[in-house]
Amino acid sequence: MSCVQTIMDYGLRSVGIGERLLPRTDFTLCHQFTLIGSGMIWNIYFGLFALLFGFFLATTVALGKGSRHFWLRKPSEWFIFIFRGSPLFIQFFFAYFLFLSLKGVNPMFDAFTSAWLGALIVLFLNTAAYTGEIFYGALRSIPKGDIDAADAFGLSGWARFRRVIWPTMLRLAWPAYTNEAIFLFHATTLVYFSGFPAWQQRGDALYYANYFADKTFNPFVPYPILAGYFIILSLTVIGSFGLVNRYLNRHLPSDRRVKLKIRPQIIR
């Protein structure tokens, strides 16, 4: 079987298109590259949507934590503490069994027990908490002069937030937010190891890498392939966040622009 045929058969296997049965014997390099790459679809799906939705909740939470009102501040602080203070792995398990119990009460929760929705919700809340803390830190370090200037221009309320506070907050938070985005993509590999079932063996990249490592008893092929895919993904994230960073800093003289510094990733 040629490699093109393998790609046709397994290229979209992780979303249920193509060959139903996974290869059981005679694993070729092409098999491993194709299936692990196919699994990357899920990693990108989880990461992208969690980031997208999480961004808005994170802004809300950051503003809440910076608020002077007790009833806005406390819930935000607790939200951030709970999601940053406990392992993501346990959060996945807890959410899965929570949805499983809710499913017994109301069939409406049926979809929540599958990974595409349930795990996405956990990742969304988790990244919102981590990003919220980053944004909160940025909010607190907005130069006082910027706010004074906004006041001098007669800006207040929503206009001041939209035109001065929010862009400055994003600009200050962007390097840390880039790191957070990379960690989030890495964290998506936990999904299929934490309760959420891989229905009909449709899993993410690590799920397939683990499948091959178990079947061939040789970890030295599938994991480096996985690593390669993730390095490409990380570089893409860095590249696209770098473009946004340039846009956010476009008004500054070129020597004062903040360069993105990528720190090594860390488990959550």
């Binding site: 590999t189 890498a209 683990n210 996985l226 990380s234 990733q265 488990i267």
Partner: peptide
């Protein structure tokens, strides 16, 4: 050694090392 952890999910390292070390 310090650079190798960049860019790759750590859980992949865990799954990899536990078999690789044993072998």
């Amino acid at each position: 050694y310090t650079a190798v952890v960049r860019g790759v999910p750590d859980i992949a390292f865990f799954l990899f090392f536990v078999i690789a070390l044993d072998q």
